[in-house]
Design a protein around this nucleic acid. Structure first.
Length: 400
DNA sequence: AGGTATTCACATGAAACTATTCTCTGAGTTAGG
DNA sequence: TAACTCAGAGAATAGTTTCATGTGAATACCTGT
């Protein structure tokens, strides 16, 4: 088939989608269902901001896909609208602390805040205090309430400790006119437990917990979205139910369910089907999973890839592999392709990270007299492994 | 047989180092007046 | 003399290395029976 034919067919073929945007994670619906209570609570807590009084700091807990971010964005959006209409000195800032090179360190976070106020701060070169000062001088010009949302705040403390949160909570002491409220969003339910007590008490003046959705609720959420996103009649029977069941199997992750539905739709469309069917859901699930892994591997440094490659070479031989063996092979590979060899210490950390990412399964065992080591087994299916091998071979230019 | 003590092969932690990217500052240079 | 150039000092950050210390249980080594 010629490519031009392909494009023509592509145009002629009517899409299954009406408008895909309703299934994207950036979409904020006009109404957030099953979260009315929480939204009301958040609104109660933040409402003083509209009178230009500083609201309490707020900490929001809930597992992934329970609508935390969505609800907060929803509340902020409507507060912003009111603030604009009534000319209230209110500023909302939403930062995701997980985003690399945006807000994942103290310096960058403050720099980002300064940027929100229209002053670009160089990515490096200045002392951190200096950036604080820039921020202060920008913000403190007039009476103003700032609502600062830190999404995935637990990632931030995991990475750089809680000292900076202490600094953040102390910002108000430095400001004369403006006031800043911190709204932290955490996936980790015990996030505050191992926080400095001072930080904890200051940060969690108020707390809200978002419970997980159950399967029925996810069904309703999915219906609400899919009705708008898909052309009517393009969803197969039982599809929404199955999709909700998939998501509820974990802990009621609505975002995952929505992603699943969208990818299933895309796959169905690509295969020329008139209907999104259950089999597309299954395909979508494995596609999402493997895409995620492939992406993380690709974005990983070459040294990581070389380590993973060694593991994949070793794993067919036997079920259990130990750190020493991996390191041995890894070293040979590096020598062969003229990479500099990392220390075993480092490789040990890399293995721990792969474990975290769920790419391998590592368990620390003691072999008694014969030492203590990680017992590694790979947790990817064969198809994905061969694919990854190819990718890595290309990326580190392994000829043989 | 039963009880300790050793020992292995790493794991884990902390600190220091390296390289890169970037700003700021002040000395030296240049070109026009 | 004002404008420009450029080297050097300092920062932030990521990725390592170095050094030090920790550790679970299979074995080696005792001990007293």
């Amino acid at each position: 088939m010629k490519v031009s034919n392909f494009f023509e067919n592509f145009l002629k073929k009517d899409s299954l989608f009406e408008d895909k945007k309703y299934l994207l994670s950036s979409y904020i619906p006009d109404e957030v269902i099953f979260r009315e209570e929480q939204i009301q609570e958040v609104a109660n807590i933040l409402a003083p901001a509209l009178r230009v009084e500083k609201p309490s700091n707020l900490l929001i807990y809930g597992k992934t896909g329970t609508g935390k971010t969505l609800s907060i964005k929803y509340v902020l959006k409507s507060m912003e609208n009111i603030a604009i209409k009534n000319n209230i000195a209110l500023k909302t800032i939403f930062l995701n602390c997980k985003l690399k090179r945006i807000a994942d360190t103290e310096y960058r976070l403050i720099a980002q805040l300064a940027k929100e106020f229209g002053r670009a701060v160089p990515p490096t070169g200045l002392p951190t205090d200096e950036v604080y000062n820039i921020f202060y001088s920008l913000v403190d010009k007039k009476k103003l309430v700032i609502l600062l949302v830190l999404d995935e705040i637990d990632q931030l403390t995991k990475k750089i400790g809680d000292e900076m949160l202490y600094n953040l909570t102390r910002i108000n002491a430095e400001l004369k006119n403006a006031q800043i409220s911190i709204i932290g969003i955490s996936n980790n339910l015990i996030f505050a437990e191992n926080l400095d007590p001072r930080v904890k008490s200051s940060l969690s003046q108020e707390e809200i917990i978002f419970p997980s959705y159950n399967a029925l609720q996810i069904q309703d959420i999915l219906r609400g979205r899919s009705d708008k996103a898909f052309r009517s009649g393009s969803l197969g029977p039982g599809l929404v139910e199955k999709c909700a069941a998939f998501a509820a199997r974990e802990h009621g992750d609505a975002r995952r369910a929505i992603d699943l539905l969208r990818v299933a739709g895309e796959l169905a469309e690509r295969s020329g089907s008139k209907l999104v069917e259950i089999k597309h859901l299954d395909e979508a699930e494995s596609k999402i999973e493997s895409d995620k892994i492939v992406n993380t591997i690709i974005s990983q440094p070459k040294q990581f890839q070389a380590v993973l490659y060694s593991i994949m070479l070793l794993s067919p031989e036997k079920k259990k592999i130990f750190t020493g063996e991996i390191y041995e092979l890894y070293r040979n590979i590096c020598n062969k392709i003229k990479f500099n060899v990392l220390t075993q210490r480092r490789v040990s950390d890399i293995l721990a990270e792969f474990d975290m990412l769920g790419i391998i399964n590592a368990k620390i065992i003691s072999k008694g007299r014969y030492g203590r080591t990680r017992e590694v087994s790979i947790s990817l299916d064969d198809r994905l492994q061969t694919k990854l091998k190819e990718i890595i071979e290309k990326s580190i230019q392994l000829s043989d």
